[in-house]
Every structure is written in C-alpha cells, then in structure tokens.
C-alpha cells in the first residue's frame, strides 16, 4: 500500500508541477488524436449524413456492418495497417511507419465506423417533420444535408466526442504504428503501458490521471455544448 500511495503522490506532483515529460506526452497524444478525429470527420460527416438520408434497400446491412466494425480490436487495425505501411508493404515507400501520421491514419480508420454509424443514427433519428419541411421549402441535396447536420448537431457532436475518446484511449494502433518514440510518437497510452513495464509506475500513473482528466473535460464540454448550442 505504501508503494501505491507513494507512487500516487509522485504522480500527482508530476501533474501539478506540469512535468515537461508528462506535458510532452500528453500534448503529442492530444495532437495526434485531434488530427485523427479531424481526418475521420472529413470522411464520416458526408458518409454518415448520406447514409442517414438515403433510404435504400441495403442500408440496414451497411449499418449492421458498421456496428460490427465499431467493435474492431485496436491491435487488428494496427496489424492490418502495419502490413500496408511497413517497408515491404504496398504503401511502404511513403515512409509513414513510426511517424505520427501512421497513428493518425490508424486511429482515423479505427473510429471511422463509429463516427459514420453515430452520425447516420443521429440523422435517422431527426424529427420526421424536418425532412418534409426541407422538401417543401425546395432544398436541394446539399442544402438538405447541411440542414440535417445543423439540426441534429447535438447527436453528431456526441458521436464525435465519443470517437475522440476512443482514439485517445486506444493503445494497439499507437503502439504498432507509432513505435513509442519519445517526443515524437510516444502517446499517453503507449507510455503508460511501456513505462509501467519498465518499473516507472509513477509516470504511468500520472499519465493515467491526465487521461482521466481528458475524459472529464470532454464530458463536461459535451454537456456544456448541449446547453449552449
């Protein structure tokens, strides 16, 4: 118990004193995951909105498939992308492996099904009067999509925040594609896993605390946005 308490105290000190190593790792993590969410949103917003809008025969199947992909283990995504990005792989020439870009790609792929699924769910769950009103006012496809997104923004936002949470909290992709290079691709989760195994329990604990704080801030942000917008 002494060991745990002492580690906890050290971890707290590391956080409160804004320890440069903790800060660097946390910022790298945040930067990578924010970018991954941005990239995923770029694809998921149009795809999710279209999927929510278009009532075609295979839609259910597509959504079921997305649902299954949401549960994809992070190491499987890491493994597949490793195959593609490694020197011998088809995209090996790009030299992306063990760079932050590799993690960004991996995390984007990981959260893409979750984002598309939740965005389409939001659009499908919109007030049925919304679509009829847009039609009656003469909206074209783009205008329809834009206003459906605006009017279901809370659900969409919740999905995006959820996606960010999954990206920043995952370890498989970051480990396999980033390689845990200090100051470059070392994220909070890879650091926690590796530092702890090296016996640096305090640093792991401090980063765990930061990760928890990120989760709290995200939740708070979501609640605040729901009230404000």
């Amino acid at each position: 118990m002494d060991y745990f308490e002492a580690s906890l105290r050290t971890a707290l000190r590391l956080i409160l004193s804004a320890d440069s190593e903790v800060l660097l790792i946390a910022l790298t993590s945040l930067r990578i995951s924010l970018f991954a969410v941005l990239v995923a949103c770029f694809l998921a917003l149009p795809a999710g909105i279209l999927l929510g809008m278009a009532d075609f025969p295979g839609r259910r199947l597509v959504r079921q498939l997305l649902g299954a992909l949401m549960a994809l283990p992070t190491v499987v995504v890491g493994l597949l992308l490793y195959g593609l990005l490694s020197r011998k792989g088809p995209w090996g020439e790009l030299g992306l492996l063990y760079t932050p870009w590799a993690i960004i790609i991996g995390q984007s792929v990981l959260i893409l099904p979750l984002l598309i699924h939740s965005i389409s769910t939001s659009v499908m769950g919109a007030d049925p009067r919304l679509s009829l009103t847009l039609d009656s006012l003469g909206a074209n496809l783009w205008q329809r999509g834009w206003y459906l997104m605006k009017e279901t923004r809370l659900g969409i936002l919740a999905g995006i925040v959820n996606g960010f949470g999954r990206a920043i909290g995952e370890v498989g992709v970051a480990m396999m594609l980033g390689g845990n290079i200090a100051g470059y691709t070392r994220t909070m989760t890879t650091a926690i896993a590796l530092e702890t195994s090296k016996g640096e329990f305090e640093l792991g604990l401090a980063l765990g605390g930061v990760l928890l704080a990120v989760a709290f801030v995200l939740n708070y942000l979501l609640l605040w946005l729901q009230k404000e917008i």
């Binding site: 039609d135 009656s136 605006k150």
Partner: peptide, 22 residues
C-alpha cells in the same frame, strides 16, 4: 409526385405542428 421539384416550388405547405429551425 415528389420527383416533380419544379411543380413543388409553386406549392406552399404548412403542417399542423410546424417544424422551426434552430
């Protein structure tokens, strides 16, 4: 029908419980 967009542009429709946008 619903595909007659040009025609629909000349029709105004107000539902019982209108939907108002944010």
């Amino acid at each position: 029908g619903p595909e007659s967009r040009q025609r629909r542009q000349r029709i105004g429709w107000v539902m019982q419980q209108p939907y108002l946008f944010h």
